[in-house]
Design a binder for these strands. Structure first.
Lengths: 145, 145
DNA sequence: GGCTCAATTGAAAATGATTTTCATTTATAA
DNA sequence: TTATAAATGAAAATCATTTTCAATTGAGCC
């Protein structure tokens, strides 16, 4: 999903497309890494200084509620976001512990397991969270040097 | 893992087994649900008042570092803990969105997927996070009434 | 049982992240 | 261009977590 299409989608949902929101969307969609609110805030300082951290929080909340962002669950923080490459599609992440780069993939092959758990436990299952952690090719090279 | 064995393990690792730690371990191992630091703190108020929230944080850190607790990744918080039923063993959780109850399971059948991702992306994979979310049998009854 | 000492505790203060408030500004539709 | 509701930024408020430090205590030793 490009920055432009995220912006259009926002507007389609009845929200204003302000320069601040454009800037925040630019930062997110220009990065392969997952970013926390303060990551985004500090990247904004270069190109679009003056935007408040509050606005970053508010915009992230808005984008998340509109389903235009993915959360990444890694390490300590529960608040690291990523552009959604596959809007609406069920998918998962493979995250590099070195640089934060995220690759995503679609088929998680968990249907059988889900069925088994349902029948064994009596739970109804609504969703799952699956993320792989590792090191990307370039970070592996760095380590081995 | 019982509360008693958690305590013994702590002592084996050279830490003191104080009444506060006992109380915190009791609360955690007496619960089927995952608990945040303040959940634990408020449950302590009944039976063992006077224990400070700081001590809860410190004890949780200690238990986590000793591998005696599991983290649960659900909803907003990154800080919800659970007794470790299977010490040391690789396992995953099935969490009830209604009551917070957690069931765990061992075989996640992700080996093939992991191999495929490794060869397709050039990443080396170190670990994964897999959790299922749903509703347990009793919470399902509540909803349907 | 008392003694010693490092580990542990609790209260308060410090820090850091996030949210709320509110007066001002601005994107958008008419 | 104008009107208006939505959005912004600064400051304050809130909430979670960590640090500091003086007082207490568990555990090994006599």
């Amino acid at each position: 999903m490009t920055g432009k299409s995220i912006g259009l989608q926002l507007r389609r949902n009845g929200f204003k497309l302000t320069p601040q929101r454009r800037a925040i969307i630019d930062v997110i969609s220009g990065s392969e890494e997952h970013l926390t609110p303060s990551d985004i805030y500090s990247r904004l300082q270069h190109k679009y200084p003056g935007i408040g951290l509050v606005t970053v929080y508010r915009t992230l909340e808005l984008l998340e509620n509109s389903g235009l962002l993915c959360e990444v669950h890694i390490g300590d923080t529960c608040r690291s976001y990523l552009k959604r490459k596959r809007p609406g599609e069920h998918h998962h992440h493979l995250v590099c512990a070195g640089c934060g780069k995220v690759v995503d993939f679609v088929d998680c092959e968990l249907g059988d397991l889900e069925n088994r758990l349902t029948s064994e436990t009596g739970f109804s299952i609504d969703s799952h969270l699956l993320e792989f952690m590792g090191r990307c090719a370039s970070c592996r090279k760095l380590v081995s040097k």
